[in-house]
Write a protein that binds this DNA or RNA. Structure first.
Lengths: 312, 312
DNA sequence: GTCGCTTACGTCTAACGTAACGATG
DNA sequence: CATCGTTACGTTAGACGTAAGCGAC
């Protein structure tokens, strides 16, 4: 049974006329005749009584009519669903982000993106860089945004907005009012670092090592799983840390944490958008990726990114 | 969007493999490839991620999969519905019958027919011959069984079981014990006849007229709308009547009404199955018509048709 | 090298249109 | 005779198969 035939049957049944159905379908009347004939032959049923100029459904035709209506409706619903999907108007955008991008960057971006597509839903999985990468590889996430360049076959990295990692100290710390401290000074104070697997930690260790300060020289007094925990540790006077300036916005404003420059050291990184090269992106994900590319770093910093120097 | 493509897509999605889907569909693998390619082009969407030897649905593919499943299921349901319909296993058999066939013949036949098709329902409309004919013409009834040959363009008559119209008198009537009476005697007793439009009345009038007894010569003392009313009239001693032997079964057995032969007159008729020549019969009606044809008059008379001579 | 999807190409069915025919009112 | 469905036939698109190509493990 061919859907085309069923569709034509549906039109004929509705119009009670072969010729009117043909007109409605932009076909010629013999074509409609042929399809109905073929359908009747395929089903081995007579579907219409041809009564002079009147065409009526037979009992069998009425049964088929109900099924035909359901088929045509289902097809229509499918086409509409696909249409909306293709336009990125519907669907679920499944994203992943490591902690800093996931907590401080993506929420702002999604806040701009979602209002443009009221029909969509967004799932944002915030884990760490490694886990995000794994999920992209498995296909659980369409796109990930991570804070470190982690290579993997089948995974493409696209550089994204820039981030600066800064030295953060408690407002009551002796360094709080200094313009800058030397790199060597870092080894003299208790240091709090992120857990292994964190992109931030990777970047910090690389940057310090490149500048001639092996990570082992730091007086690491604590290793914490989240940036939030580290901030609490800093405020409690446990130690200092180097973290994304993005995470310090509120604390700088509030004056509870101050950032201090490190002499001759600027730790900058790009966040990366990662995706599986072997998998196709959903239209919605494509739309989002395009949206990301139109975002200049400016449009992010424009909204309340803390200035480098603490306000307090 | 072609249903064939969707169906093939559905198989590929289920098997997570083009080649396995091809095998399941008895197609070659390139054919399946081609269909998926065409579908992806038609929808302007990538439906599968081809990951080496693994094939996975994209997000768009998953959306389509839901629709595809509904489409395939709907098609399947339609085919099954049609199948059952064609086999006459389901549906409604809409019949009409004039009073005698409708009340005394069809119930017996339907009692044999329906148990063979548990899924069907039967609507039996009992009116008179003319009304039954009209309804067949209008298409409200697929088949009618009437007691007289009434010609109409587009209506075909098929002779059915034979019926005998007999003289019925009350058990207390002077004629009750006679073997027969003369035709002329009929004009000497009060006569009860059926209403206009009745096939029985038509047949009786024709038969008497043919035998030389104009209907006007009867001493008609009552005209009643139903056979049942006439039987009550006979039992009450209002008069005699000529009616179908089929309607007298119980009364003869009970001894309340006796049948008497009329000399040199036997009034026989065939019931006719009528149908519209311009309309197709539903498979169920076809099945029923075939069933009717296999019924010999014997199989009807076999079950308790009253003997011509009264038992009492 | 093997497995599995894609591409290329040839065949053949069938979808469609045009034109002629036929029946109904 | 006008309208509407059917039949006949020619054209073209596409469904399918075979064979070769190609990337991944």
């Amino acid at each position: 049974m061919d859907l085309r035939q069923v569709e034509i049957f549906y039109y004929v049944a509705q119009h009670r006329s072969f010729s009117k159905a043909a007109a409605a379908l932009s076909l010629t009347q013999p074509t409609v005749s042929g399809h109905i004939k073929a359908l009747e032959a395929a089903l081995n049923l007579v579907l219409f009584d041809r009564l002079g100029r009147d065409v009526r459904l037979t009992h069998a035709g009425e049964i088929l009519y109900g099924h035909a209506k359901r088929l045509v409706d289902t097809k229509q619903a499918a086409l509409q669903g696909i249409e909306e999907l293709r336009d990125g108007l519907r669907g679920e955008l499944v994203l992943g982000g490591s902690s800093i991008p996931g907590q401080y960057v993506l929420p702002r971006i999604l806040g701009q993106f979602q209002p443009q597509y009221p029909g969509i839903s967004i799932a944002l999985h915030i884990t760490d860089t490694m886990e995000t990468l794994d999920r992209v590889v498995r296909g659980d996430l369409e796109l990930g945004i991570v804070g470190a360049q982690v290579a993997h076959a089948h995974v493409a990295h696209t550089p994204f907005v820039e981030d600066e990692l800064v030295l953060a100290v408690s407002a009551s710390h002796p360094w709080a009012d200094l313009a800058s401290v030397s790199m060597d000074a870092l080894t003299t104070v208790p240091f709090i670092q992120r857990e292994r697997g964190s992109g931030s930690r990777l970047v910090v260790e690389h940057a310090l090592a490149d500048a001639g300060l092996p990570p082992a020289h730091l007086r690491v007094m604590a290793e914490m799983g989240t940036t939030e925990a580290i901030k609490q540790g800093i405020k409690a006077g446990l130690g200092v840390s180097i973290m994304s300036s993005l995470a310090l916005e509120d604390e700088c404003k509030a004056g509870s944490i101050c950032t201090v420059a490190i002499e001759r050291l600027s730790i900058r990184r790009h966040f990366s958008v990662i995706r599986h090269t072997g998998r196709a992106l959903s239209p919605l994900a494509q739309t989002f990726e395009t949206f990301l590319q139109t975002l200049t770093p400016l449009s992010l910093t424009l909204q309340d990114t803390p200035s480098h120097a603490p306000t307090a």
